[in-house]
């Protein structure tokens, strides 16, 4: 992989992370306050969410029929349409975990760089969680 592609990959993570920081999305207390509809609800992250979707939509629309990126990389967009039990169960389990701690994978990485040591505990659960499924699936194949 050429160095320019490494740079653009790094920049994409950096810019995305800056977005999580400036909006406060990286701070689990803000995310939990976003879930707190019956209490001291802070709905502002909805603006961040909707805007990020809108910007991303413009980009995907522009790139819809392209097969190569600007740097001649093949574009692989997921084309699975199937809604299955795995999708439903997985999303539900994810939501429970997200609702408990207010942390999802992107913000978790930003929290490492923010030197929030407690986020290590989140990773102690996250990484085995990610491979737990792979292990089960390998056995069932």
């Amino acid at each position: 992989m050429n160095h320019l592609l490494k740079l653009t990959a790094f920049l994409s993570g950096l810019i995305f992370g800056l977005g999580l920081l400036v909006s406060g999305f990286f701070n689990p207390n803000n995310v939990l306050a976003f879930f707190d509809v019956f209490g001291d609800w802070k709905a502002g992250l909805m603006i961040t969410f909707i805007l990020s979707i809108a910007i991303s939509a413009v980009g995907f629309k522009t790139f819809k029929n392209k097969t190569k990126s600007l740097m001649n990389q093949s574009i692989h967009l997921p084309d699975t349409q199937r809604v299955n039990q795995k999708l439903i169960l997985g999303s539900a389990l994810f939501g429970v975990g997200w609702g408990i701690a207010g942390i999802c994978p992107g913000p978790a990485l930003v929290l490492i760089g923010s030197l929030k040591v407690e986020v290590i505990y989140f990773f102690i659960g996250l990484i085995p969680g990610i491979f737990f499924i792979a292990l089960i699936q390998r056995k069932s194949v």
Binding site: T80, K86, L93, F94, P105, L126, G129
Partner: peptide, 17 residues
């Protein structure tokens, strides 16, 4: 609790891809 939450997020995100 953070460990449990992380585990659920990991399992869930992998299952739902």
């Amino acid at each position: 609790v953070l460990i449990v939450a992380g585990f659920l997020v990991g399992v869930g995100a992998t299952l739902s891809n």
